[in-house]
């Protein structure tokens, strides 16, 4: 997007913090700027280092995103060079989690394809009128005045569509849920991530840093993290999402133990509904698609996840759905995705 006004100072310091002061910064895989022929900065692509493990073996991964070009219509070479430069870097795996249509078109021209099972956005609606008002308010602040009317509409019409909204094709799940943060959350996420053949090679410090930055996202409300356990206390999973009463909740991460995906998804939806969200949305992971379908979520695509790798084992892990490469593992946690800078 071409903007004439100067970027806010808070954005400049945020870029420095995220891309230059990342705890796993890798000088061989830096972010890039495009300098035009007059010596001015004409574009930028952010690169987040994302060390991973594939069946215990280290994988050098780079998350490329936040591609921005000053006046791309007049300067189409900038975006092409920036993306091509990152893709041809020394990493084993390049990931773009939230490529828009233009970026995706560029990845495709270089031979990479979108990954539908990692790309689709899911939405589970609890209160249809509230959902419509919240969706409008995201684009037009003035639409916030519709919320009280929407709330009344949902309350009045609720009995008419109760079974369609609150029913589920899934059997009831027994679980206990507890809000957690800090070291407990980190320990659970580390443990759950290992259920994927390809997963982040996190250390506690990096994950703490990542979660701290994720918690600074403001647009969708407060970040809430929960652990889900079986009645006997066995770890089933974790969910991390943002919500405010009367708003549309936004899921950053759902991780579960094997065969517990449906229970963890049920816990997430139950909690969001109980705390007043009008709907919940997030990005699918291959293992959550079926439980979400049974929970009557609907699916759409507004951004694509795409990878590039020459390693057939990495490609096979991704293709089989055995890869944890989105959310906290990629770039959804940064404020550049969906937040505003004043």
């Amino acid at each position: 997007m071409h903007r004439k006004e100067a970027a806010p100072a808070s954005l400049a310091s945020y870029l420095e913090e995220i891309f230059l002061n990342h705890p796993r910064f890798d000088a061989d895989m830096p972010s890039r700027v495009y300098i035009d022929q007059k010596g001015a900065v004409g574009g930028f692509i952010g690169v987040l280092p994302a060390p991973m493990l594939l069946d215990g073996n280290p994988v050098r991964a780079a998350v490329a995103g936040s591609l921005m070009v000053d006046n791309p219509v007049e300067n189409p070479l900038a975006g092409a060079r920036l993306l091509r430069s990152v893709r041809s870097g020394p990493q084993d795996l390049s990931i773009s989690e939230t490529a828009n249509d233009i970026s995706m078109g560029m990845w495709e021209q270089m031979g990479d394809r979108a990954l539908p099972r990692y790309s689709l956005q899911w939405i589970r609606v609890f209160r249809p009128a509230g959902f419509a008002a919240a969706a409008l308010a995201e684009r037009f602040k003035a639409a916030r005045v519709l919320r009280p009317v929407a709330s009344l509409t949902d309350s009045a019409a609720g009995p008419l569509y109760h079974s369609a909204l609150f029913g589920s094709d899934d059997k009831p799940r027994k679980y206990s849920r507890k809000e957690i943060e800090g070291r407990d959350l980190i320990a659970h996420l580390l443990e759950l991530s290992k259920h994927y053949g390809l997963h982040p090679d996190w250390d506690e410090g990096t994950l703490e840093w990542t979660l701290r930055h994720a918690g600074r996202k403001q647009r969708h409300g407060e970040m809430r993290s929960h652990v889900v356990q079986s009645p006997s206390g066995k770890l089933l999973g974790c969910h991390v999402y943002f919500a405010r009463p009367g708003g549309m909740a936004w899921v950053l991460q759902v991780l579960s133990s094997p065969k517990a995906e449906a229970t963890v998804v049920a816990s997430l939806l139950d909690h969001a509904r109980e705390t007043g969200a009008v709907a919940v949305r997030g990005r699918v992971m291959p293992r959550t698609i079926a439980p979400l379908m049974r929970q009557r979520a609907f699916f759409l695509c507004n951004a694509s996840t795409v990878i590039h790798t020459k390693n057939p084992d990495i490609q096979a892990a991704v293709d089989s759905g055995d890869a944890f490469i989105t959310g906290l593992a990629a770039e959804s946690w940064i404020r550049l995705i969906g937040d505003r800078f004043e």
């Binding site: 219509v73 975006g79 092409a80 091509r84 233009i102 078109g105």
Partner: peptide, 17 residues
Amino acid sequence: LLENGLMDSTGVLELVA
């Protein structure tokens, strides 16, 4: 091709390919 908007960033990579 650039000044007349005949080639965008996707087109550049298409041409490179």
